[in-house]
Simulated scan of single mutants.
Amino acid sequence: MPQRHLHQATRDAARLARPSGTGLDGGAVRQRMVARLRAEGKFDERVLAAMATVPRHEFVDSALAAQAYEDTALPIGHGQTISKPSVVAHMLGLLMGGEGARQRGSLGRVLEIGTGCGYQAAVIALLARQLTSIERLQGLHEKAQLNLQRVPLPRAPRLIWGDGRAGHSASGPFDSIIAAAGGEDIPRAWMDQLAPGGRLVAPTAATGRGQVLVVLDHVVDKGVSHWVRSEHEAVLFVPLKSGVV
C-alpha cells in the first residue's frame, strides 16, 4: 500500500536523523557559553560573535551533546578531541590580532591545519574571506564534511584530506594560518605559504617550556622578509604528524 510505504519512510527518516540534543537548538545554552567567555574580558568580540552563531553540539557525538557548551575538550573519535571553547576563542583572537587582520577586519585567506570535527572551521568561516582546512585522518575528514553540511555558512570551507605539514600551496598564499596539532617546530612549508603581513598561530615546542602557543608574523621591511616569533602560554595539543591515514 502506498500509504504504508509513506509511513515506513517517515519512520526510517526519524531513525536516521541525528539527535539535536535536549534544549540545545534554541541557542540559549550557546549564548550562556559565550557570556561566560565574554565575562573573562580577554577574548576578541568578533570571535565571540562567531562562536555565538555556530551550534557546537552539531560537531560532537550525540551522547556528549549535553556537554557541548561546557569549557572542556571532548573526544571526537580517532584519538582526537575538539578543543575547549576558551582555547578556540584565544587562538582565533591571537590570529585576529595580526596587523593584516586588523587592517582588513577579517582573517582573509586562511589555512587551518587539522580540521578535526569541523567546529573551528565553521567559526573561522564566519571570520574569513576564504578557508582551506586540511585533515590527515580520512575518518575525521569525512565526519567534518557531514557536520559542516548541517550548519549554514556564508562561504563553505574547502576541506582537504592530506598532509597538513605540507600546507596547501595551491590555495595560498594565506593571510592567516592556524594549527590544531603541535610539533617540534613550525614547518617551513607553512612559513613559505604565509603572505607578507600574515600571521600564524600554532602549538609548538619551546625550549624549557614544553608546548606553548607560538605566534609567527611575516614582516617585510624594505623588501626583505623576516619572521617575528612570540611565545605565549603552555598548551597541550595532539602531536603534529606527517602523512595521511
Rank of each mutant, 00 (worst) to 15 (best):
T72K: 11
L111N: 10
A89K: 05
G105K: 06
P85D: 14
C117E: 07
V87T: 15
V87N: 12
V54Y: 02
H90T: 06
L111S: 08
V88G: 07
D61C: 00
V54Q: 04
M51G: 15
H78Y: 11
G98P: 06
Q120I: 03
I76L: 01
I82G: 01
Q80I: 02
A121Q: 00
R104A: 14
H78R: 09
F43C: 05
A125H: 01
T115G: 07
G97Q: 03
K42S: 15
Q130T: 12
A52S: 13
Y69S: 12
A101E: 03
P75Y: 05
Y119L: 07
A63F: 00
R129P: 07
L48M: 09
I82E: 00
Q120K: 07
I76N: 03
M96R: 07
V60M: 00
L94N: 01
E99V: 08
G79H: 06
R46N: 04
E112T: 10
G114M: 04
S83G: 04
A68I: 02
L131M: 10
Q120S: 09
K84Y: 13
L92D: 15
A122C: 14
G97F: 03
E112M: 09
R104D: 13
M96G: 12
Q103N: 09
A68K: 02
H78K: 08
V87R: 13
D61H: 05
H57K: 10
Q80G: 00
L107R: 11
E70T: 09
L74K: 07
L126N: 02
H78W: 13
E112H: 12
L92S: 15
P75M: 05
L94V: 07
G98A: 08
G77E: 00
A73T: 11
H57A: 11
T72C: 12
S86Y: 09
K84H: 13
Q67R: 07
H57Y: 11
T115K: 13
Q67A: 08
A66D: 08
A128M: 09
L131V: 14
E99A: 15
R104C: 11
H90G: 05
M96V: 06
S106T: 15
I124N: 08
R104P: 13
V123F: 11
K84V: 09
A63N: 02
G77P: 03
A50E: 13
A50V: 14
S86C: 12
A73S: 15
R109Q: 15
R104F: 14
V60H: 00
G79Y: 04
L64E: 04
G79K: 09
S62R: 09
F43R: 04
T53Y: 04
G93L: 06
L111E: 03
F59W: 09
A73Y: 11
A73W: 15
H78T: 01
T53G: 03
R56F: 15
